[in-house]
């Protein structure tokens, strides 16, 4: 059998030097198959977002390994063409002084890819934004529109793996539905592999085939979607998340 697309084994991430050390991720392992959509669920401080940052080389890995297609993670431009990320807060992830056009064409410029006009317009169309948005600034866009731009930017280099860090938690419920639908469509069209992080069990359940529940940097349990729907889980923490999710709307 082929190596899993993303394989995390016994990952530890520790912040801070001598004295004050925070162990944000403690011995987490899981693997994501090619074309799969995998979820990480947990509350604030559970270390779920830190794992995504570690994959991107933006958090200090103190032990364990991250492998993509059975090899160590490439860095620099090779990584950029393989893995991209969509951030939680669309108000913070777009440069406030750059137009949508600039945001989308910058990755192309970095990689020396030509044909920018056509690619930018195609990207806008792919995320369901009209052409007239091309020269707007972020402050002229709503939260949902900004997140669409952020998704379009992540797709400019045609990566195969998309890391989604709470992509809808800053959005209104109706906008969340639109963005989740868009992400589903894009995955189906392009055969993308998703690794998605959320605090919302219902969102992960809707989007992912398998998921890992995390608490305080460690794995609580790994579940398949059917197990979650059937209430087939053992950890009391998972039950609390499950019940809270049934009570609240989102």
């Amino acid at each position: 059998m082929a190596a899993p697309r993303v394989e995390i084994s016994d990952l530890h991430v520790t912040f801070g030097q001598r004295g004050r050390r925070v162990r944000a991720v403690r011995g987490v392992s899981f693997s994501v198959a090619a074309g799969e959509s995998y979820g990480l669920v947990g509350e604030s401080g559970s270390g779920k977002s830190t794992i995504l940052r570690a994959i991107c080389g933006m958090a200090p890995v103190s032990a364990g390994s991250i492998r993509i297609d059975g090899r160590p993670v490439p860095r620099g431009r090779a990584f950029a063409r393989l893995v991209q990320m969509v951030f939680q807060d669309p108000y913070a992830s777009l440069h406030p002084r750059h137009t949508v056009d600039r945001v989308l064409s910058e990755p192309l410029a970095i990689h020396g890819i030509g044909d920018r006009d056509r690619r930018v317009l195609a990207a806008l169309a792919a995320v369901g934004l009209p052409r007239s948005f091309r020269f707007r600034f972020p402050h002229q866009l709503s939260g949902g529109q900004r997140q669409r731009v952020a998704i379009a930017r992540a797709l400019m280099l045609e990566p195969e793996i998309l890391l989604l860090d709470e992509p809808t938690s800053a959005l209104d419920a109706s906008v969340q539905a639109e963005v989740l639908n868009l992400l589903q469509e894009l995955r189906a069209e392009r055969g993308l592999t998703y690794l998605m992080v959320s605090h919302d069990l219902a969102v992960i359940d809707h989007m992912c085939d398998r998921l890992t529940v995390m608490e305080n940097g460690a794995v609580v349990e790994e579940l398949r979607r059917e197990q979650l729907a059937a209430g087939d889980f053992r950890a009391p923490y998972t039950r609390r998340l499950f019940e809270a999710s049934l009570e609240a709307g989102g």
Binding site: R77, V83, Q84, P96, R97, P107, I110, A150, M156
Partner: peptide
């Protein structure tokens, strides 16, 4: 900021990030 992380993830070099993304701010 996330927008700097994003451009770094796109593979931008330090010079480009400083001159074109940080300095204008």
């Amino acid at each position: 900021a996330d927008y700097i992380a994003a451009i770094r993830l796109a593979g931008a070099g330090h010079g480009r990030i400083v001159l074109r993304h940080v300095a204008p701010m």
